[in-house]
């Protein structure tokens, strides 16, 4: 668990009266249970039990934005397509569908991943956060507010991916250097050319998020 994760309380977990730490422990147990339960076969590989899926549909459970969601998908189906087509969570976009553009970026246990390149079955037991989770009680997250204020979106199709990559960047580097920004957001592409606004948004969000979390840092 990286230290950056510790800084982010899971709101749903809070509501349920579960501490962040316990919540994560719970999900890591869930990682193995449903896999074995739903796999048709378990084979021995390198001395370990390895579940084998498919080719038919399997029932899976994903933890998306703090809630357990179930779906029935073939093992070849990606996390992105499951979010979009099975769970109607369409913030993450499908653009290149092969790990180049970042439009599908979501956070998996706090780390940004290209959800087009993660299988849904692999995503079980991990904490998935999509762009839809950031707004709380009708209030935009500082990263979202900064994207709006700096006009860092035109058509907006790349924006959810950028917002999530930016959040992950600032979680890890609250005051990022230029080089960290280039690396952190280098995996996302925009066709409308909003990079100028995005640079401004990162600066504003960096300041905003520090303010937001000021009180919780030492805890």
């Amino acid at each position: 668990m990286s230290s950056s994760d510790e800084r982010h309380d899971n709101p749903q977990a809070d509501q349920a009266g579960v501490s962040r730490r316990n919540f994560l422990k719970g999900t890591s147990v869930a990682l193995t249970v449903p896999l074995i339960a739903q796999s048709e076969k378990v084979v021995k590989a390198a001395g370990a039990d390895v579940p084998v899926y498919g080719p038919d549909k399997v029932n899976i459970t994903l933890t998306v934005n703090g809630a357990a969601k179930t779906a029935s998908v073939e093992p070849r189906v990606t996390l992105l397509d499951t979010l979009r087509n099975e769970l109607d969570t369409t913030g993450a976009k499908r653009v290149c569908d092969r790990a180049t553009c970042g439009a599908c970026t979501v956070l998996m246990d706090g780390k940004p991943v290209y959800s087009c390149t993660v299988l849904a079955i692999e995503a079980q037991g991990h904490k998935i956060e999509t762009v839809e989770s950031l707004e709380q009680n009708g209030k935009l997250h500082p990263v979202q507010q900064a994207f709006w204020d700096n006009d860092a979106q035109q058509c907006g199709f790349c924006t959810p991916g950028f917002v999530m990559a930016c959040k992950a960047l600032l979680d890890e580097h609250p005051t990022p250097t230029d080089e960290q920004i280039k690396l952190g957001l280098g995996g996302n592409l925009c066709r409308c050319g909003t990079y100028h606004g995005i640079k401004g948004a990162v600066a504003q969000a960096s300041a905003g998020m520090k303010k937001l979390k000021g009180g919780k840092r030492n805890g």
Binding site: R84, N85, D88, T90, G91, A92, K93, R94, T130, V131, E132, L134, E135, L140, Q144, Q145, F147, W148, D149, D151, Q153, G156, F157, T159, P160, V163
Partner: peptide, 27 residues
């Protein structure tokens, strides 16, 4: 002036046609 549809775009709520899911939809 900040664009009016900024909030729905940054929050992932904006529904593009690619995002439309209909009951019983085929691919």
């Amino acid at each position: 002036i900040s664009r009016l549809d900024g909030p729905v775009k940054v929050s992932g709520k904006a529904k593009y046609s690619y995002d439309i899911n209909r009951p019983g939809m085929l691919f």
